[in-house]
Amino acid sequence: MAKIVGGIGSSHIPAIGVAMDKGLEDTPYWRDFFQSYVPLRKWFNEVDPDILVIFYNDHGLEMFLDKKPTFAVGTAAEYENADEGWGINPIPPVRGETELSWHIVNELVENDFDPTVCQEIKVDHGLTVPLTLMYPAKDYSKVKVIPICINCERHPMPKLSRSYAFGQQIGRAIESFGGDQKVVVMGTGGLSHQLDGERAGIINTEFDLLCMEKIVSDPEYLTKYSLEDIVELAGGQGVELNMWMAMRGCLTGKVTEGYSNLVAPISNTAAGIQLLINE
């Protein structure tokens, strides 16, 4: 059976992509952030996963308001990135994994989730930045990626409890898939930040640290927060915590922390970096 060996929490902001494009990793502003990926990548390279499931949100490349899914699951054999207007260079196409994707979709629908199923979508920086952080040389042609998109742009958004349950169902689906594939799941985005309004710029590292602690030991605890609570505590875009909850939901075994750091400010955000081992 396929095995989920671990989960990674990571920021996905465009500025990271730009910094990598420009080779700024070792500048004072970026050094501590990129240093945090050294232990993550060491583990990741040793695992050398066959399949990478990436929970992300689409910031306006593919999932526009005309037809906006709450949850979308990619089932394509390949995904393209594209110009988003931010000045990040689009990355080469990402390989998909159709078989496991369809298995996940089947299990989701069988268990009363209502995903939008995507056979042809472009993936935005929410996915490409974390992918590139794992493969800085962009040598990701071997790994198969399953993009799973969660609405974080327009209320109503899925509750933390729903994203967690969504992840749990996906985890069960993966673990019931025949074969001996090694799977890593990524929850991307966050943590505390607010881009808009007179309150722009708030960061709440105390709350972020609480989230990173609870996500290891007691993720259910976090489902007590409504998204309005999250906005109040962690800023308007703090709702990207939903992707971390879905990632954590996938880890159905005994979960321990392999690495953890919080670096702020990275652009307008507190960037959480976390490795969860699933046994």
């Binding site: 502003y29 501590d32 240093q35 708030i202 709440n204 400010p265 507190a270």
Partner: peptide, 8 residues
Amino acid sequence: QGIGKNNG
């Protein structure tokens, strides 16, 4: 509001 930039 920063945190974690010790090596910077």
